[in-house]
Structure formats: structure tokens, C-alpha cells
Simulated scan of single mutants.
Amino acid sequence: MPASAPAPEAGVGTALAPRPGKRALLIGGVAAVVLVGVGGAAYLLADQKATPEVFANAISSYYAANTEAADKLLCVGGLQLDRNPVRLNSMEGERRRFMDELATAGLFAPAVVQSSGGFFSIETYSYSRTDAGSQAIRDGRLCGAPALKVTDVRFAAEASGPQVVARFRYDFERPAAWLAGNLAQQVRQRLSQQDERVAVMALQDGKWIMISDNPRTARAMAAGSRAEAPPPSMLERVKGWFRTGNPLLGKWRVTNALWLDGTVIAFSETHASVGRPDEAVTYEIKDQRITVRYTERGASDVFVVKDDDHLTLEGELASVQLVRIKE
């Protein structure tokens, strides 16, 4: 028999796969950790994408932290509720009906009626706030909820850059128990909840935040950048046409009240004729709402601009529509 071949010596002929040393394992582990860390850092440092959901959260945070701005969307002013009790006389029938409605809703106690006596007897109606009324009325304004919720957000799809103008609608978050029926309809109508609002958004530290609710700021920003807002509403376009800065100036005619048919009211820079001739007035303009304060009698009216030729005079229970008289 032929002699068998000698067995190869260890380490000769067949090469065994080398095992990685501890140093190689350590280096590989460190590299993996670095790669994961770099990927995580890139994710954390990436700018937040502009989406309706992201903007809605930012808008909600803005109003949650800014009570004054939120109250403009939650509270109705111009109702003369700053005094407690609210006292009216027998000649103020429309306001008494509104106060009776607030009393029915539980915000005021039923009116206490007092008579002055004498030949010309005048009855006085005194309405005192309830605990619910004290919670609902802040700084003389009737507030329908403690907070708001954003229901719809839109912005131009081609918008880019660190600032964007968005538009949104909102509703009440946790509306008050008394906010129901006709009273709820009046509150929502006075706050113009059906209208879109403006939000100026800015990218700061990679996160989108809301920085302003001022329509003028939004228009100026859109005009000076490529991140233009969505097409403005007719009201916003018309408001840009006013040269005086006060759209009330001029003469107006009542259109929807037969008992006021033919009534003309007029406004100048310093005076107005609204029920009384040529009274000294001051104006407070906030967006499309203009408050006219009558200096001598200490009363006020709130007008809402609909467009260049149409106004609404807000009342407790009804609104008066006016059209501009063009001369």
C-alpha cells in the first residue's frame, strides 16, 4: 500500500479565517454609534415641515399664551357690561330685552324694578351678576369660552422661507354652559366666527411658531417677500383701498329697518351725526370693527365694515345695515 501523505502542520497549507481582535470590535462599535448619532442629530436639527397640522398646533399655543389676543376671538365687547349692577331705565327697551336674555341664561339675577315716584315716574331696572356672570364677563366683555380650538388652516402651497402667512378658522374650546340657542348665535355673529383669521408664522430654531395676529403685519410681510398669503378676502382687499384710514367717514343710509327708512348718518374726522346732530366723537379701529365713542354722553356704537359701501351697526338684539351715500 502506498504510504499515506503526512498530515499538514498546524498553520501550514489551510489558512484559517482570522478572528477580529478586541481593538477592531471596539472601532466598529464606535463607528456604528457615530453613524446612529449623526443620523439622530440630523433628524433633530432638521427644520420642521410646514403643514396645516403643525401650524394649527403653533396657532393654538400662541393664543394659549396670549390672553389679550385670545380674548379678541372669545369675548364680545361693546355691551356696556362693565358695571355691576347694570342699571337701565324704562326707555331702554332693547337693552332690557337683551339683559333679560342674559338673566334667563343665568348670568344675571332677574331685574329689580324701582320707581322714582312723582308725576313723571321713571322705572329703573337693576341687573346684578351671578357667579356664572362674573366668570363669563371679563373687563366688561362677554366671553363664550376659556380657550379656542383651530378648526381649519390653509396657506399658499408655494410659500417658502422663514416666514409664512396662514389663514385659519376657529371654534370655542369648552364653550360655556350658557352659550346656547339665540344667545350663542348672537355671540358667534358678533365675533364673526365665519370669517378667516390671519396668522403670521415664523421658523425659529427649526420650529414653526406664530408671531403675530395683525392683518397689517401679514399684508406687509406678504408684499415684501415671496411667501405670499393665499388670496385675500373681498373685505381685506376693500380695506386696503381706504385712503383716510377710517372707512366710516362720509354719509350712510339705513336699508333694513322700516322705522328708520330714510335715516342718514354721517361721520367726519372729529364729529358724527348718529341719532343726534354733530356730536364730538373718537374712533377706535380694530380690523373691520370700528367703535365710535360719543364724548359728551359717554356712549358708544360698534360698526362692522363689510366692504367699501356697506356697514353694519351692531345692536343688542338686531343689526342695522347701512349703505354709503355717494355724492
Rank of each mutant, 00 (worst) to 15 (best):
E9W: 05
T14V: 15
G21M: 05
L26N: 04
A31Y: 01
V38F: 04
G39M: 13
G40Q: 12
Y43D: 11
L45C: 05
D47V: 04
A50P: 14
V54P: 09
F55W: 08
I59F: 06
A64C: 01
E68M: 01
G78H: 06
Q80C: 00
L81G: 08
R95M: 11
F98A: 12
D100E: 10
P110R: 04
A111M: 11
S116P: 00
Y127S: 09
I137N: 07
A145S: 10
T151K: 08
R154C: 07
R154G: 15
A166C: 12
R167W: 01
R174C: 01
W178S: 06
L179Q: 00
A180V: 07
L183G: 04
R190D: 03
Q204K: 15
D205P: 03
K207Q: 15
I209Y: 04
A222P: 01
S225H: 03
S225F: 00
P232T: 03
P232W: 01
G245Y: 11
A257G: 00
T263G: 00
A266R: 06
S268L: 03
S268M: 03
V274S: 00
D278P: 10
T282Q: 09
T291I: 10
T295D: 02
H310F: 09
E314P: 00
L317E: 01
V320T: 12
V323T: 14
